[in-house]
Design a binder for these strands. Structure first.
Lengths: 224, 224
DNA sequence: CCCTTACGCTACGAGCCGTAGCGTAACTCA
DNA sequence: TGAGTTACGCTACGGCTCGTAGCGTAAGGG
């Protein structure tokens, strides 16, 4: 529906939107996903419960919009001069974002719900996932210009690789924080970046040989 | 409490346990996490609701036990002769496991809840996470014996690396399936394994590095 | 001034939660 | 065999949240 289609009548209060989304984040911090009720959010925001239901069909969609704002605020791909530094920075940033009490937990819960709700999945994708994915695209483009990565001819294969890297980076950070329940500190970020850039066989992250000199020549004979 | 401490009185029905856990998995498939109610599970299992509450304190703990069985059944580290093949097999296996309608979704939801519940986090850790982590340990040990990976002296650093690899592999699969909502097919498994082993920069860009690449020398990881 | 839309407020039926109470079933030990 | 102990099935209940309906009022547009 275009904005011009809603010219008549009382306009929706933009301030109410901000208040509701803010109250949602606050409630997520204090109560967590499970104990968060829409009635409570409405009370915190100072609006009627019915107003909330007029704008969002379900708790999930509300929370998606609430945390999407946090993702937009805290995710940007800054140029740090090298692919290694860029990846490391993104990992730290994403870790800090998911470590916040309202984002990571809520994202997990919403994703879980989205497996049974196609519309919600689309909303999550456009509001959160696709925007994160852009970081990978931008970072790879910069690395290519620096000569750190080879050129890619096939655009389809390029997209596939971008998805692969995105899943690897974001997945590792998410898993570390949510499932292993351990912090994404600078050392882990460095170790992971080494692993991502040089691989298991190449660099022994943490040890003496962390340089880009892969000793991967000692591959197995019977690979199959 | 040791099993000998409960010798007197009527013993708990082991069949009821199986029925309840089975009913939980079935209900997860049909209803999903959000719409799953304990009353419904009890009805499916043919037991009284009170029996259910006597054994599990909450919906979360019940579901943890229910999906932990699935993890135990479908996760084993089979020796396929090379590190590359082993990793690929684990990725496929884990993907198939998380793709089942009752496991992945429920795991996400439970993890989300566990962020606010220390006891539940411990339960998840011992029932699911630690057992998965053993796959990494076993696989790396085999690779070391084959000479595919260097020896590690520092046990502490070794544990850190195992955690890192675990988060990277499991996280990537989880993210691919749950958040990107794309399948973990053989091609993706191969691409990811290449990335994990040879890294973003390594791979075939150097030419000889990926020489002994098994089946399919058109390894695309270099064109990252 | 009328029309349209949004808002606040109240009230309501519905559903699930988690527990209490009771009588019965199963198993152990003396 | 009988007493003690524990688990089970069943019913019922207060409490909470949900999502909606209805009403009167506020804020814009033609």
């Amino acid at each position: 529906m275009s904005p011009s289609a809603r010219r008549t009548g009382r306009p929706r209060s933009a301030e109410a939107d901000r208040a509701i989304l803010g109250a949602t984040r606050a409630a997520l911090v204090e109560l967590g996903w499970a104990k968060l009720t829409l009635g409570d959010v409405a009370a915190r925001a100072g609006v009627a419960k019915t107003t909330l239901y007029r704008r969002w069909a379900s708790k999930c969609e509300l929370v998606v919009d609430a945390i999407a704002a946090a993702f937009d605020e805290h995710l940007e791909a800054t140029d740090r001069g090298s692919l290694h530094a860029d990846v490391e920075a993104v990992v730290i940033r994403l870790g800090a974002l998911l470590q916040r009490p309202e984002t990571g937990t809520a994202l997990m819960a919403v994703i879980a719900e989205a497996m049974h709700d196609e519309a919600l999945r689309c909303r999550v994708r456009s509001a959160i996932v696709d925007r994160q994915k852009r970081l990978v695209t931008v970072g790879r483009e910069r690395a290519r210009l620096r000569g750190e990565l080879p050129r890619e001819e096939d655009p389809q294969e390029s997209a596939r690789n971008a998805d692969l890297i995105f899943d690897t980076v974001a997945g590792a950070v998410l898993h570390r924080l949510m499932i292993s329940a351990e912090p994404v500190d600078p050392r882990w970020a460095r170790d992971f970046t080494d692993l991502l850039l040089y691989g298991l066989t190449g660099a022994d992250s943490g040890g003496a040989a962390a340089g880009p000199a892969p000793q991967g020549a000692q591959k197995p004979a019977g690979s199959v």
